[in-house]
Design a protein around this nucleic acid. Structure first.
Lengths: 142, 142
DNA sequence: CTAGGTGCAAATCATTTGCCGGGGC
DNA sequence: GCCCCGGCAAATGATTTGCACCTAG
């Protein structure tokens, strides 16, 4: 364990029918579908389901740790004035991004290059955490 | 070499004034600003610049390799039925995502945990490449 | 003159949210 | 009864694009 299902998931959710179907469909394929694609898949079994419901349930399922979201925690693009390869660390809470002071792992890139049938052109590594500032705020609540 | 400025950049661009200012501002800070924040920064020097121009130039600067974009190549969220931690490989060209068959590097996570003042909760590693299918298409053009 | 560049506003696209009736416990 | 749920449509927010003018080479 290491990545994903960050942050709390402190809610009570029933496993409803649509939720179950969405979960099954996402688990059935290995194509890492977009929300829209999931919508298409699920609609074959539940023609009257709405896109909003799919989004809501994908969100619930991923914060419950049953599936995972692939993509940035915050969906706003950020830019870095340094063009060389280095890693970042992102705060789950406020979205702030800083540089992560570790060496790059180009070794891994070579490994994957041998195994995979993709032409590898690079990799991205991002750490996820809670920044000191947000940690502070969090304390003042409890 | 390793990350970023993937794919061609086969265009001729002049270093115009606004382009230069945007570049300088992004390089000046180490906060990894969003497009909107860059807009704010740049506007102090060029009050009449438009947000559209900022977006256009950030795009050009990053495909030219002068700065880098932090975030997913495609800004559409994807979902994975497998909840355990594993890495992905994404095609620059079509956006397809597959699993990358390499072991996780939790060692790195511990390293960063010691160095950084963030509470680390996980990490994400994503390889970027061109999938066989797109590679094929590419050939048929040349 | 031609191509790229810019400001501006409108359009697009993914995702989120408010409302409201319905069912589970 | 209370609360979560799901369908629907409208709202939001980031990013993109069409258009008309402008300027460098």
């Amino acid at each position: 364990m290491s990545s994903q299902n960050f942050l709390d998931s402190g809610q009570k959710h029933r496993m409803t029918n649509q939720r179950q179907v969405i979960l099954e469909e996402v688990q059935k394929v290995n194509t890492h579908p977009t929300a829209d694609e999931v919508y298409g898949m699920v609609r074959k079994r539940l023609p009257r389901i709405s896109l909003g419901t799919v989004y809501r349930n994908l969100e619930i399922l991923s914060t419950s740790g049953l599936i995972q979201k692939i993509g940035p925690p915050s969906n706003q693009m950020r830019f870095d004035g340094k063009a060389d390869n280095h890693y970042h660390i992102r705060c789950v809470s406020c979205g702030r991004v800083e540089d992560a002071p570790v060496e790059t792992v180009d070794k891994l890139e070579n490994t994957i290059r041998e195994i995979s049938d993709y032409s590898i052109v690079g990799h991205k590594l991002e750490f996820i955490g809670i920044c000191p500032r947000c940690e502070e705020k969090r304390k003042s609540f409890s």
